[in-house]
Design a protein around this nucleic acid. Structure first.
Length: 679
DNA sequence: GGGTCACCAGTTTTT
DNA sequence: CTGGTGACCC
């Protein structure tokens, strides 16, 4: 239950909007999630059946939170049949039912970055490209960009000017063919294929339009062309589409997101009602004034200004540090001081940076000071080799056509199928146009493979088939996984390979963690099966991923470290926005290559608006980069903040510098500040 | 099959 | 300076 009277007038208007298109321009911290969840609850109370409601988000976390909050409001029973999902999981649901219409089998696999990379690398090697590792990433990147722009493999144009484009034009079609042969799709395919499916099959489009009479989309400013087309397809007819977003927080252009979608929404959906949420419930006045001052320098935007009923609060502190190490030390000092002064916990602090590599100096310092911290991003649980190995087994058991993973495990752990034999098997498979799995099943017919290897292969086939049967029993999933790990002797293999016993132990523990993930999955899934578990893993459901398991999250009081991108949607009492320097924010590439300073400004805006009570901006005068000392300039965005909001201070002068150098650097600093603020 | 060495590249990345 | 990779050699 909820009370409409606890909402402000704009929020109330949005919540009670029933039919037709609605554009909700929701500034940072304006209670956007609350409005969406209340609107869903309200629709239910108005008698809209749960199964007619669809809410789409970008992250699992957002979807989960939304679902939880709706459940709290209307009760679990009332949400049955409602779909609150990410774009990717929505598309996966649709494809699970209809993908046969696109020529795939229903047990298809989802290829994540590692699988894609391996496949691309193999394809590059096939056409004789040497240094395939770095090229693979670039090719993959371009294929992803093409898919986000809805460019299919056969219509990708090669170019005389750019060799990479030519390479992509060659690889992209082969890549799609391989995926199809392996009965696999990648992330971008999930979306692109769903759009194709609905476009080519009007009966399906009709079906889903009817099914989802009331649709809501969060973070609409981040939609790419494919997502946009999907939404248009789903909303056609009734047009009951409510999109929520903030053009000022559009920070995923590099992933194909296009702010134009939110800017043109009123035009795309005539008769759209527009509501702006500008009252901010998160940050103190000075922080909002600074954020507004910065963002108004962007030209292409919907005019809006955040305001708050709370007071001005503390000034924003700008700390100019000597170097990277000094920057980290200053943050520690402030954490100690603020923690004491404000009775805060470690969990109330966040350190935000532009690039993940910036986290290191802070991690070192936090460890040195024994301050607990969590690093968001970076190496993911499922990226670890020992985890990928187990998942490769599960994927092959689910879909033996998946050759990337089949090759990964064929001789791991070692079972006497050497690289030479594998080459011969692959060649045979290619020559005779028989799938690898089939070749392995009838390996005795391959003359080039000796008897001992043939026996090893048939043992392998037998192993996979045995586990296919065992994993088909949903009630025994956990036991079966444990049995498999034991039978494969993966732990022994790890201890044998890894010299450091402590590291080996941790890697084995990671594999055991996968069992916990499976347990979590079993607990919260009505009809669990192996395919479902793999899907959840593939879609990065971090609840299943185990690293966010509830106990550790609640028990751990820790400073958060993350990139500005990952910080969107979150809030912290105290925020340190570090690396406020030209080259980091705005990033060098945006200055010299993409020329999109506005996007960097939005990124800066996102960072600033994460802070509730206190905001620290930090930058350095010099920084070690790739081993070389570099002079740094303060970020241009600092100059866009009204000076009266800022409290500036300079860190320690260089310890080894002479007095003259000290004097010189101090003078130049004040000169710089003077110029920046036009004194 | 495993270990060492030289070479290269280094923005963000919700899924 | 780092981490990751491929080539090469035993």
């Amino acid at each position: 239950m909820f009370d409409l009277n606890t909402l402000n007038p704009q929020q109330r208007q949005a919540v009670t909007h029933k039919t037709g298109s609605l554009l909700l321009l929701a500034g940072a911290g304006s209670g956007k999630t609350r409005v969406i969840t209340c609107r869903i609850a309200h629709l239910r109370q108005q008698g809209v059946p749960a199964e007619q409601i669809l809410a789409v988000t970008f992250t699992n976390k957002a979807a989960r939170e939304m679902a939880e909050r709706v459940e709290e409001m209307v009760g679990r029973k009332e949400t049955k049949g409602m779909v609150i999902a990410t774009f990717h999981s929505l598309c996966l649901r649709i494809l699970k039912v209809h993908i046969d219409r696109l020529g795939f089998k229903k047990n298809f696999s989802i290829y994540a970055a590692a699988d894609q990379q391996r496949l691309i690398r193999d394809l590059l090697r096939d056409i004789g490209v040497k240094n395939s590792s770095s090229d693979a990433d670039q090719v993959l990147w371009r294929i992803s960009a093409a898919k986000n722009h809805f460019i299919a493999a056969d219509s990708y144009q090669s170019s005389d000017r750019d060799p990479l484009t030519t390479l992509v034009a060659t690889i992209y079609p082969r890549y799609q063919q391989a995926l199809k042969a392996y009965n696999a799709v990648d992330f971008d395919d999930l979306l692109m294929f769903t759009v194709q499916l609905l476009e080519q099959h009007p009966d399906l489009q009709e079906h889903y339009c009817q099914r989802f009479q009331y649709q809501m989309v969060d973070e609409y400013q981040d939609t790419n062309l494919v997502q946009y087309r999907l939404l248009k397809l789903l909303a056609s007819g009734h047009g009951n589409l409510c999109v929520v977003g903030d053009d000022d927080q559009s920070i995923y252009a590099f992933r194909g997101a296009d702010v134009a979608h939110i800017l043109n929404f009123e035009h795309d959906f005539p008769g759209t009602k527009v509501i702006k949420l500008e009252q901010n419930y998160r940050s103190s006045g000075n922080i909002l004034t600074a954020a507004n001052a910065i963002i108004k320098n962007n030209q292409q935007r919907k005019e809006k200004a955040l305001w708050t009923e709370s007071g001005a609060g503390s000034k924003i502190e700008y700390l100019l540090c000597e170097d990277g190490e000094d920057e980290a030390r200053q943050v520690m000092e402030q954490i100690h001081a603020e923690k004491y002064r404000g009775k805060l916990a470690y969990g109330d602090f966040a350190i935000l940076y532009r690039t993940n590599s910036q986290s290191r100096s802070f991690e070192e310092q936090l460890r040195y000071e024994n301050i607990p911290y969590v690093l968001i991003g970076g190496q993911q649980f499922f990226d670890r080799k020992e985890i990928k190995d187990v998942i490769a087994y599960l994927k092959v058991i689910q879909n033996p056509a998946d050759e990337v993973n089949l090759l990964r495990i064929l001789n791991y752990p070692k079972r006497g199928i050497g690289t030479g034999s594998i080459d011969r098997i692959i060649r045979h498979s290619a020559d005779k146009k028989i799938s690898l799995w089939r070749v392995l099943q009838q390996v005795d017919q391959v003359a080039e493979v000796n008897d001992r290897t043939a026996i090893a292969c048939s043992h392998f086939v037998d192993l996979i088939q045995r586990y296919q049967k065992r994993f088909a029993q949903p009630l025994r999933l956990q036991e079966t996984l444990l049995e498999m790990l034991t039978e494969l002797k993966l732990a022994e293999e790890i201890y044998r390979q890894e010299k450091d016993p402590q590291i080996a132990q941790r890697r084995v523990a990671n594999q055991e963690e996968l069992l916990n993930s499976l347990a979590t999955y079993l607990e919260r899934t009505p009809h669990p099966d192996l395919a479902g578990f793999l899907d959840r893993i593939s879609l990065f459901d971090d609840e299943i991923a185990g690293k966010n398991d509830k106990e550790s999250k609640l028990a751990l009081d820790a400073v958060t470290l993350m990139s500005l991108h990952s910080s969107k949607g979150l809030e912290f009492p105290v925020v340190f926005l570090v690396g406020m320097e030209e080259g980091f924010l705005p990033h060098k590439k945006s200055i010299y290559e993409t020329f999109d300073i506005d996007e960097e400004r939005r990124l800066c805006y996102v960072g600033i608006t994460r802070a509730q009570q206190q905001l620290f901006l930090l930058g350095t005068q010099q920084r070690r980069k790739y081993g070389k000392l570099e002079q740094r300039e303060p970020s241009r965005f600092l100059g866009e903040i009204p000076e009266k909001l800022l409290q500036k201070s300079v860190g320690e002068p260089p310890r080894k510098a002479t007095l003259e150098e000290e004097a010189a650097s101090a003078t130049s600093f004040f000169d710089n500040i003077g110029q920046m603020f036009g004194d």
